[in-house]
């Protein structure tokens, strides 16, 4: 049953993807990308990957549509026809596709009990999480503690990407000469619904942040949700008011501070006699130390992700048009 739904949703995704490539109208492409993201999230959910589906919900459905539209408002609506290098691009894509298809023939079937991951990796985590870390969501235990190095790397990737975008777009004028951006605050329905929804989005973001040990979620998802709430505020009240609440220096501090907090937890555990990112030494009880460490590094992840997403949004939104 699951497979039938999966195949149906994947077929819809394929159709959407082809339509995105075929259309010359960039606005249509943006809306179709929104549909693509929704279908993708439903697929993740069918595969029982709730944490990934939550990320896709926050980033794909909410923020990337906003970012694509704000980029689109700075450029033309129609894609410029370009013919050079199309055959080369097609050839590269075809070769890559065939190589990947060939590779999937060797990979074990989905859910195969003899797959290597079910032989020694997953059982080890399932066996050791209750005693060593004692959180119900094993994904959080793996992500934040067992593979804390990888997550530190991911946070620094987000951090670096944010800095890269700000280098290109970040020099927007602080006091704008043109008339302040008013947003949608004169539209009654949008304003009322938005003002009602924003507190719930923020509350849900904090819930996902601090409840990540127990249910789906964690710093990445929470960061995207909080950023989505503030972007909603900026859309309704205008970017100028939003920048008054969260000024640029605070955003820069968040971008760097979250990554610094994550690294700082690692250094602190070294100073207290453990290995880098070994949270067990943070408290007299190893399990309590793990809980404290996970809470702190998830907070660091959330702060950096919020900071980066908001910085990118404001960098686009403070330009001339949007």
């Amino acid at each position: 049953m699951n497979a039938i739904f999966g195949i149906f949703l994947l077929t819809l995704m394929l159709i959407t993807a082809i339509a995105v490539v075929r259309t010359r109208n960039l606005f249509v492409a943006t809306t179709l990308m929104g549909i693509f993201s929704l279908l993708l999230a439903a697929n993740f959910f069918l595969l029982d990957a709730a944490d990934v589906a939550l990320t896709e919900a926050a980033v794909g459905a909410g923020i990337s549509t906003v970012l694509l539209l704000s980029a689109l408002s700075l450029t033309a609506e129609q894609e410029k026809p370009g013919h050079r290098g199309r055959l080369l691009a097609l050839a590269v894509v075809l070769v890559t596709t065939l190589a990947l298809l060939h590779a999937t023939l060797d990979s074990p079937r989905l859910g195969d009990i003899d797959a290597p991951v079910h032989q020694h990796v997953a059982p080890w985590y399932i066996e050791n999480t209750p005693t060593a870390i004692d959180v119900p969501n094993i994904v959080t235990a793996v992500l934040a503690s067992f593979r804390g190095y990888d997550t530190l790397g991911e946070v620094f990737v987000v951090f670096t990407a944010g800095i890269g975008v700000l280098f290109l777009l970040g020099h927007y004028p602080h006091k704008q000469a043109h008339k302040p951006h008013e947003g949608l605050r004169h539209y009654l329905i949008q304003r009322l619904v938005g003002r009602t929804v924003i507190p719930f989005i923020l509350l849900f973001g904090f819930y996902v942040q601090f409840h990540g040990d127990f249910g789906p979620g964690g710093g990445f998802q929470a960061g995207a949700l909080v950023a989505a709430g503030i972007i909603l505020y900026a859309l309704i009240e205008g970017t100028d008011r939003a920048l008054n609440i969260i000024p640029k220096w605070l955003l820069n501090g968040m971008v760097a501070g979250g990554a610094l907090l994550y690294g700082g937890v690692g250094i602190a555990s070294m100073l207290m006699g453990g290995n880098f990112l070994d949270y067990s030494v943070l408290s007299s009880d190893p399990v309590a130390g793990q809980h404290l460490g996970i809470l702190l590094i998830e907070l660091g992840v959330g702060i950096t992700v919020t900071g980066v997403l908001l910085s990118i949004f404001f960098a686009f939104a403070s330009r001339k048009h949007f």
Partner: peptide, 14 residues
């Protein structure tokens, strides 16, 4: 359900 609203507002603003 919460996030869906943002995309629509972004389209309006656009």
């Amino acid at each position: 359900a919460l996030i869906n609203f943002i995309g629509v507002l972004a389209v309006l603003e656009f």
